[in-house]
Amino acid sequence: MVDKIPILKMGKFLLLSIQVDMHDQLAMDLQEDLTHQIVLHRSKGVLIDISSLDIVDSFIGRMLSHIAHVSRILDAKIIVVGMQPAVAITLVELGLSLDGIATALNVEKGMRRLEQMVEDDLSLELESGEDRDFSAEAGD
């Protein structure tokens, strides 16, 4: 069995595609590895492609939620792309809502959305920066 899921760095983003039937330890290793890489590369976003996953059970769902929460704390955006329709239907019936996880239909849309989310964040930071400049001038 596969013992590691590769994480690719692309600019300020990390990409990973889960293409194997994950056993639980593999899922836990992935969480840890991804968290480590986000910090190492100061990544602004992570795209997770699950189009090859033919089921998402509560364990994998929990892993995805956990990754999303940890990433948010580390100031990285997460997007999950490519969920198969049958998997989505099953998830809802199982009772998993994947709250707080952004999703997109495919990698292309997901990448655009991720770039948008990061840009929005940047422009917010810029705006608040300008505010400070104004008030500084006004004070002078």
Partner: peptide, 17 residues
């Protein structure tokens, strides 16, 4: 069907765990 397959596999995964 594909949805039924996915449901029984997911249920099996939960119970087996």
């Amino acid at each position: 069907g594909l949805v039924s397959q996915t449901k029984i596999v997911t249920a099996a995964s939960e119970i087996a765990r």
